[in-house]
Amino acid sequence: MITETQASTALIAAKDLTFAYAEEPVLRDIFLNFQAGEFTGVIGPNGSGKSTLLKLIGGILPSPSETVFFKNRELSRYKKKELAVSIAWIPQDKQMAFSFKVIDIVLMGRHPYLSPLSFEGEDDYRIAQEAMKQTQVLEFAHRSFNEISGGEKQRVMIASAISQKPEVMLLDEPTSALDIKYQIEILSILKQLNEQENKSLILAMHDLHLASKFCKRLVLLKEGRVFCEGPPAEVLKKEILEEVYEVKVKIFQDDEDGSLLVVPERS
């Protein structure tokens, strides 16, 4: 149970959040707090509501009244640009219909800071340039976004979110469909943002091993409900995962960093 005092210190709080696209709720009775500076992974089987939860927290989807709060203020009470300088959200789908250049995409993160009809100024370019250095995409600043690889696209999107200068970054499956090298690259960048700049990160993730390796805290969803939450070692347990994923698993531990490897048992 969440007490009032705990809720008031949280950066983001979901209180009794239930949400449905149609009739059938995708999320039910969610109570969750996210503290400043946390690195949280949201895990769970396909269709358990990970993406939807991120979109509600990020204000992409309209949440029912009095259910989602940022700094104790309901999300709908923020102006759109006000919320955008606090929370950035990075989508999973990165298809783009038009061939914007990488620099154009990164500069889009400056939108909430600009008034209508104004062009980006020196400051905006400096901030975008630093963000691109940080995610190592500066060398293809002038290439078309549609022509770069999946891992590069993800780094560009992160650079765009960085130039938005938010306190919280929400990432929907940032490592899916990427090779291991790029997965580690992306997560290392995020780790750096979390540790050095104290950004709060909330990631929807599929890969349980990467989740245990990088996240400080995991939230496990099943059929729209929070099944359990806590440090990775407390969430990634055999009996919990077998119930949630409905498959027999074995869990191995990496001796070096203590990360957990979950593999299905042969049936």
């Binding site: 204000g59 959200w89 789908d93 219909a97």
Partner: peptide, 13 residues
């Protein structure tokens, strides 16, 4: 034009 939901998260009405 670069994505409706991304636009929302960047403060576009």
């Amino acid at each position: 034009s670069a994505g409706v939901q991304s636009a929302m998260s960047r403060g576009v009405d």
